[in-house]
Amino acid sequence: MGFKLLSKLLVYLTASIMAIASPLAFSVDSSGEYPTVSEIPVGEVRLYQIADGVWSHIATQSFDGAVYPSNGLIVRDGDELLLIDTAWGAKNTAALLAEIEKQIGLPVTRAVSTHFHDDRVGGVDVLRAAGVATYASPSTRRLAEVEGNEIPTHSLEGLSSSGDAVRFGPVELFYPGAAHSTDNLIVYVPSASVLYGGCAIYELSRTSAGNVADADLAEWPTSIERIQQHYPEAQFVIPGHGLPGGLDLLKHTTNVVKAHTNRSVVE
Rank of each mutant, 00 (worst) to 15 (best):
M1C: 03
F3T: 07
F3E: 06
L5N: 10
L6C: 15
L9Y: 10
L9H: 09
L10F: 14
Y12F: 09
I17C: 13
I17M: 09
I17L: 08
I20C: 08
I20P: 06
P23F: 08
P23S: 10
P23R: 09
L24D: 15
V28R: 08
S31A: 11
S31L: 08
G32Y: 12
G32I: 07
P35C: 05
T36C: 06
V37C: 07
V37P: 15
E39M: 11
V42D: 15
G43Q: 08
G43P: 07
E44N: 11
V45R: 01
R46T: 09
Y48Q: 15
A51P: 03
D52L: 10
W55K: 00
W55R: 02
W55P: 03
I58T: 15
I58W: 15
S62F: 05
D64K: 07
A66E: 15
P69R: 15
P69S: 15
S70R: 00
N71M: 00
G72T: 01
L73S: 00
L73R: 00
I74H: 01
D77V: 03
L81R: 03
L82G: 01
L82Y: 06
T86N: 02
W88R: 01
W88D: 00
T93H: 05
A98R: 14
E99I: 13
K102Y: 12
I104M: 05
I104F: 06
G105D: 09
P107R: 15
T109M: 10
S113P: 06
T114V: 01
H117C: 00
H117V: 00
D119R: 00
G122M: 09
G123S: 04
A129V: 10
A136T: 06
A136G: 09
A136I: 03
S139L: 12
S139P: 11
T140L: 03
R141I: 10
R142T: 13
R142Y: 10
L143I: 14
E145S: 14
E145C: 07
E145L: 13
N149K: 15
I151V: 10
H154C: 06
G158H: 13
S160Q: 13
S161G: 14
A165W: 14
V166E: 08
F168Q: 02
E172D: 08
A178M: 08
A179T: 07
S181K: 03
S181N: 01
S181R: 02
T182K: 13
N184F: 00
N184P: 00
V187G: 01
S191A: 11
A192S: 11
V194M: 06
L195V: 06
Y196V: 01
C199R: 02
C199Y: 06
I201V: 14
Y202W: 06
Y202Q: 15
Y202A: 15
A209I: 07
A213K: 11
A213N: 11
D214T: 04
A215C: 05
A215Q: 07
D216W: 06
A218L: 13
P221W: 06
E225L: 11
R226I: 15
I227Q: 02
H230R: 15
A234G: 05
Q235R: 10
Q235W: 10
G240E: 05
G240S: 03
G240F: 05
G245I: 02
G245A: 07
L250G: 00
T253V: 01
T254F: 14
T254M: 12
N255P: 05
V257H: 04
H260N: 09
T261G: 11
N262M: 14
R263W: 12
S264C: 04
E267T: 05
